Computed example of a mutant assay.
Amino acid sequence: MIEDIETFTGVRLGPGTLYGAIARLEKNELIEPVETSDRRRPYRLTPAGKKFLEESLVQLEKITKTGFQRLAIL
Rank of each mutant, 00 (worst) to 15 (best):
L30V: 07
N28P: 08
P15Q: 12
Y19I: 05
Y43L: 06
N28V: 11
T9L: 04
E26L: 15
A23E: 01
E29I: 04
A23Y: 05
E35C: 08
L18N: 01
Y19D: 14
L30P: 02
E26I: 14
E26D: 08
V34N: 09
E29W: 06
T7H: 06
E6F: 07
R40P: 00
T7G: 02
G10V: 04
A21E: 00
E6Y: 10
N28L: 15
I5P: 00
R40F: 04
R41K: 13
G10K: 08
P15G: 04
T17R: 12
R12F: 04
E26F: 12
F8I: 02
F8Y: 15
R39F: 10
G10E: 14
F8N: 04
D4Y: 06
V34A: 11
P15A: 11
G16H: 08
Y19V: 03
Y19W: 07
R39L: 11
R24W: 06
I5W: 00
L30N: 06
E26H: 11
E29R: 14
I5E: 01
D4E: 13
L30F: 10
E26S: 11
Y19T: 13
P15M: 10
D38T: 12
V34G: 09
R41W: 03
D38A: 15
S37W: 14
G20P: 02
N28A: 14
G10A: 08
D38G: 12
F8W: 12
R41E: 04
T17Q: 14
E6R: 15
L13R: 02
G16Y: 02
T7W: 02
Y19A: 06
D38C: 10
R41L: 01
I5K: 00
T17W: 04
I22D: 02
R12P: 03
